[in-house]
Design a protein around this nucleic acid. Structure first.
Lengths: 368, 368
DNA sequence: GACGGCTACTAAATCGATTTAGTGAATTCA
DNA sequence: TGAATTCACTAAATCGATTTAGTAGCCGTC
């Protein structure tokens, strides 16, 4: 069907080997022969068959990314789409493609990596959402699959890492709140099994400790909106409830803000709120959300570049540190309230995540 | 390196051909020989080399998806991640993978399709974001690449389509608003070059016409938050400004709601708002957003299934219609205001998208 | 007992590109 | 001038799995 190297060879009156040499710019063919071969190849519309090239060279010309998320959560994360776009920028330049796998069930993740490695579908993978004591490191080493990790794992890892110090952003957020007079600053974190969940919590903790403030206002959630609501409810039900909450992502911050407002609190009058990610909608909340902006696109570009270097053996193996995220101050943060605000009664989690929040029953106060 | 079919053959004391027959369950090998071969294959840990299989069978065992979006917009769209998750569910069952390409520049899109087709990287593609008079239909036919389109193109297309009638959702939204007494119902649409932009507008138009209401309160935007703000500003500056606006997606609705509130309007007291997508954050806005929920996961599952059928020649070629989206009523819609509300002065677009809306300042971190 | 038909298997071709070994001719050097 | 070297190219092997053509052995049958 398609035109092969044999077609070009017979059309140009030479052997297949000569065509290959000519097309790849190798020595071994005369100048006018080379010219003739190139012209006939172009005239016939020849393009290399990647499947054949792949078999011969034992390379897949593709890299893999396995995303382990429940389907419902995937759509709400602003990170991956931008990250993937960055990866693509680099891959396209090198005529590589991205094989994307979504693992929605627990067991599916390891299966995905095996599938990519065993069949030789990819030449390497990007490991994201690195976890504490991450078993995938050993898995990938066992599979002999080159990899690059996003941030450095807390277990010995033979793979280079592209790092983004999210602690810098959280520290800036806490210091911003302290400068506004807040002393009871809470944190709603993501699952602490994730390194980025941990590092954000630690940064919050360190910044408070450095300022001589307490660090007990922590509630673990799961990066989802319902989780953010539940964690916020727990913090706000305390006697010593916070006057400001630092969230580990924008989605939880949005949910927390909504929860607080639904319970009669003013943001930032009664409660200041910061997010993380700088999702596009964050600026258009009511009030607009103070948050932390990283650069997932650059992260993707560099991770892909490092992985390609790793695959081709040109990478030196050192880690790469990205520029730090920056704080974007909007209107969800303000001066600490002068007056004491009564604690909010805690709701049951079930109520929060289903009936109570689900439809019409949240009636927000209308002033902004 | 890896164990091949030859290794299995010599270990089992048979020819390569016999191993192949045994492993694929074909006739031509005796029962105990077959058993022995299967056992040695298992013992040696043999897995088929996809690259070889691919070359021999002239199949890629992968399908492609080209997303044409600017990198910045990608992260804010709740559709694709869920859609992709659905695609994966089907592909994994058939041991196929998804090759994802992001085309951020205009010319990159066609190049992407050619790259996927020419090298034989994929066996087919899913065509999303179908446009009016979409040139990709002819391109794909020319490339001989099987495809499935999301919704039926408005040009003759040889490819089957998986359709979701978003008109149903918009109609429900408009009727909901009419039942609340609204008569001046506007629409902020996406780019009208997209079929889903058009069909949503047409549905809005039809529903109003059916109720004997006017259809001139239309403003075209681009599915982005800044675009939604600008379009909202234009509608609200009119003398006959709407008391309700139907947005073509949640992001624009969020931005529009924020704009209205920032200009002293009450939602839904002065202005009712509906979105589209049911993004996770929509429920946590202030007020929670009335919106339209589709099922991108199912869409992805079925599109992938149809494409695989198409590739293997088992699909009959008929279109598939998904269940209709449904209206999710929350608190951003309410009774039409009794009193007249003065028109809002229009702002310049530049102001809207920068300083005016959020008084935003960016604090960069000075140390490390 | 010769022949057809069947089973169980092997040898070799195949997919398309790359690469290695080899060959004939021209050129260079002693 | 003869040997050595270089050049331009071809033939064939290679990657790993599948498939086609072919073969040896066995059974049954007329």
């Amino acid at each position: 069907m398609a035109v092969t190297i044999s077609d070009v060879a017979s059309a140009a009156g030479v052997s297949r080997g000569a065509v290959s040499l000519a097309l790849n710019g190798h020595a071994g063919v005369g100048d006018q022969t080379r010219q003739r071969i190139l012209e006939t190849a172009k005239a016939l519309g020849w393009t290399p068959n990647l499947r054949a090239k792949s078999l011969r060279s034992a390379k897949a010309y593709a890299v893999g990314l396995v995303i382990a998320r429940e389907a419902k959560l995937l759509g709400s994360d602003p990170f991956f789409p931008s990250f993937i776009a960055g990866v693509e920028v680099t891959l396209e330049k090198h005529d590589y493609t991205l094989v994307l796998t979504v693992a929605t069930e627990p067991g599916a993740e390891e299966r995905s990596y095996r599938r990519l490695a065993d069949g030789g579908r990819v030449d390497g993978v990007i490991l994201s959402d690195v976890r504490h004591d991450d078993s995938r490191i050993a898995l990938l080493r066992g599979l002999g699959l080159p990899a690059v990790t996003l941030n450095r794992p807390d277990t010995p890892s033979p793979f280079p890492a592209v790092c983004m110090d999210d602690a810098v952003g959280i520290t800036a957020a806490v210091e911003h709140l302290i400068s506004l007079g807040h002393t009871r600053i809470g944190h709603v974190g993501g699952e602490q099994v994730y390194l980025h969940g941990r590092s954000r919590r630690r940064a919050w903790q360190s910044a408070l400790t450095a300022a001589g403030l307490g660090t007990d206002l922590f509630a673990e959630a799961d990066f989802t909106a319902p989780g953010g609501v539940a964690a916020t409810a727990r913090l706000l039900a305390r006697k010593d409830r916070p006057t400001a909450i630092v969230y580990a992502n924008d989605l939880m911050a949005t949910a927390g803000q909504s929860y607080a407002q639904a319970h009669g609190m003013n943001v930032p009058g009664d409660l200041s709120i910061t997010g993380y990610d700088n999702a596009q909608f964050a600026r258009y909340l009511n009030p607009p959300l103070t948050t932390i902006a990283a650069d997932p696109l650059a992260w993707g570009r560099l991770a892909a570049a490092m992985l390609l270097g790793q695959v081709s053996g040109t990478h030196d193996g050192g880690d790469l540190i990205l520029g730090p995220p920056r704080l974007v101050v909007r209107s969800s943060t303000g001066e600490v309230p002068k007056h004491a605000v009564p604690a909010v009664a805690v709701d049951r989690y079930e109520d929060l995540s289903t009936a109570e929040l689900s439809q019409e029953s949240i009636h927000c106060q209308e002033k902004q």
